[in-house]
Amino acid sequence: MDRKPGLLMAQLLNRFIWFDGALQKSLDERGHGGVRRLESMAMIYVHAGVRRPSELARLLGVTRQSMNTALRELEEKGLIYLEPDPEDARCKLVRFAPEGAAMRLDALDIVLSLEAELEARLGAQSVDDLARIVSADWGEAPVVRKQPAKPQGMKAGKKKRA
C-alpha cells in the first residue's frame, strides 16, 4: 500500500469521525440522540477515568469554557453529575449519573460492535496492530521549528571554504 506523505493526520481524523459518526447515528437509532461530538468525547474520557474538567479540556484541545458548557449540557441531560472535588474546593469532578446508565451501556455495546465490524472488514491482526500503535507512548508532541535557510550560492552537501 502506498502512503501519501502529509496525509496521515487527515486519515487518522477521518477514521475517528467514522467511529464517532457511527456511534452518534447508532445512539440516535436507539433513542439516545442529542449528544454533541464534544460531549461524547468527554464521556469517553470520563469512562477512561479522567474526572477533572480542566484535564478533559486539555486532552480534547478545547478551552475550559467550552468544556464547562459541554459538561453542563451533559448534566442537564441527566448523564453526569458535577460534584465538589474533596481535594480542591475550587474545582469540580465529573461522575456518571445513574440515570444515564442505559445510554452508557448502549454506547459501550455500539463501540464493541464497531470494533468487531472493523475486525470483520480489516482482520483481527490489523485491528490489534492499530490498537497497539495508537496505544503506544508517542511522547510529548514536538515543536517542529523551521530550519534555517541556506546561504545563497551554497549547494546541498558543499561547505563554503574559508
Rank of each mutant, 00 (worst) to 15 (best):
Q65G: 07
I17V: 14
P84H: 02
K77T: 00
R95A: 07
L8I: 13
V46M: 02
D85W: 10
L38R: 06
G31L: 01
L79K: 06
I44L: 13
M67H: 14
A102K: 15
L114S: 10
R37W: 11
R64P: 05
S40T: 14
V50D: 05
R36K: 10
I17W: 13
R72D: 04
M41D: 13
E39G: 13
S66Q: 15
L23R: 02
S54P: 11
M67T: 12
E83C: 08
E75Y: 00
G61E: 06
G33I: 07
D88R: 11
P53D: 01
H32A: 04
G21Y: 12
G49T: 08
G100S: 13
L112F: 05
R15M: 07
N14H: 01
R58P: 03
F16C: 07
E73W: 14
F16S: 04
D28M: 08
P86K: 15
E29M: 06
M67D: 00
G6N: 09
L56M: 00
L114P: 05
Q11T: 07
L23G: 02
F96E: 13
P86G: 04
H32D: 14
L59Y: 08
L60A: 05
G33T: 15
A48C: 08
A89V: 09
G100Q: 14
T63C: 02
G31F: 11
R64V: 10
H47V: 06
G6H: 02
M9A: 13
A70W: 03
R15N: 14
K25H: 14
N14P: 00
I80R: 10
F96K: 11
L7I: 09
E55V: 06
G21D: 12
Q65P: 03
R15I: 10
L59V: 12
L93I: 15
R95T: 12
D109V: 01
M67E: 00
Q24H: 15
E39L: 03
V35I: 15
E99N: 10
G21M: 07
Y81G: 03
L27E: 02
E76L: 04
Y45H: 13
K25C: 14
V46K: 01
H47R: 05
L114Q: 15
L71W: 02
R64G: 11
A102T: 14
L23I: 09
T63V: 04
N14Y: 06
R51D: 09
K92G: 01
T69C: 00
M67W: 03
H32L: 08
V50T: 01
G49D: 00
L7S: 14
V94N: 07
H32G: 00
L27M: 05
E39T: 05
E115S: 12
A57C: 05
I17R: 04
R30C: 11
R51N: 10
R104C: 02
Y45R: 09
M43T: 07
D20Q: 06
F16A: 09
R95M: 08
D109P: 02
E39D: 06
L12I: 12
V35M: 08
K77M: 02
P53R: 01
G61T: 07
D85E: 08
M41N: 04
S54I: 00
L108C: 07
Q11R: 03
L74S: 07
R104Y: 09
G33S: 12
D106Y: 04
A22Y: 08
L12S: 11
R104L: 10
P86V: 13
L60S: 01
R72W: 08
F19V: 09
E55P: 02
R104P: 12
G61D: 15
D88S: 04
K77L: 11
E29Y: 02
G6P: 01
E39P: 10
K92E: 14
E115L: 12
